[in-house]
Design a protein around this nucleic acid. Structure first.
Lengths: 117, 117
DNA sequence: GGATAGTACTTTGTATTGCAAAGTACCGTG
DNA sequence: CACGGTACTTTGCAATACAAAGTACTATCC
């Protein structure tokens, strides 16, 4: 197990959350989401995102419409449903809890380091 | 997919990091780690932790020694190796990056809400 | 109008891994 | 020596991230 592998592990499970967050900012199609996530330094692969979007759609959190592209094949624009918005609200709480838990562990660790040195 | 399932997804991938953080605070055996993690509101199951500790050991990040228990079977106390400490250092950076990325997404989302209302 | 490049969505196969559940084993107590 | 508590291990399953290959639409170039 290398550091890259572990970083990818850390990204796991955050993906749904981040994708929903992106869509909360506005409708988007898959390739667009990939690009935006990359800009936020969150790498996600095609083979990951497409099935993920389908799962979220099947769970009623997303819906989509087809739109023509100025150049190329038509695009599948996804948008949050009401249920998706509510779900995202709960996820934000979960994220803040997780953040708090991890940073609590981190802080004790840092304190210990300070005491040692 | 329900909220509980999703929260568990969000915990995934954080586990290695949190276990290493726990061990940075002092040697511990599996059941002890489970208890401490639970106190930090991070649930982890036996069937998850034991293989995880074995993986980290096989990767040279951890080592262990047997110690007798005042009551019950002997305990396998795990401790960080030097390599484990270095690894943890990198993981802390990764965590802060992830935290920053997610909170950046969150912030734009909140701003948007503010603008709308 | 056929070949090519670019964009976008889909599918398949593999490996990882979290979890539940069952299993093994050690110890002290009555 | 049976039992309850503690602790570690193993097995089977399901979810899923990813790589890679495939399909399909559009515009451009010759």
């Amino acid at each position: 197990m290398n550091i890259e592998n572990m970083k990818s592990q850390m990204r796991k499970g955050m993906l749904e959350f981040c994708v929903l967050l992106q869509l909360a900012k506005g409708d988007a199609y898959a390739s667009e989401i990939i690009t935006k996530m990359k800009e936020a330094h969150l790498i996600v692969m095609e083979g990951t995102l497409y099935p993920l979007l389908t799962r979220l759609k099947n769970d009623g959190l997303l819906c989509y419409r087809w739109e023509e592209s100025p150049s190329g094949p038509p695009r599948k624009y996804y948008s949050l449903t009401q249920s998706g918005r509510e779900f995202l609200f709960h996820l934000e709480s979960s994220w803040h809890e997780l953040e708090k838990s991890v940073n609590h562990l981190l802080q004790s660790h840092d304190n210990q380091n300070t005491e040692i040195q």
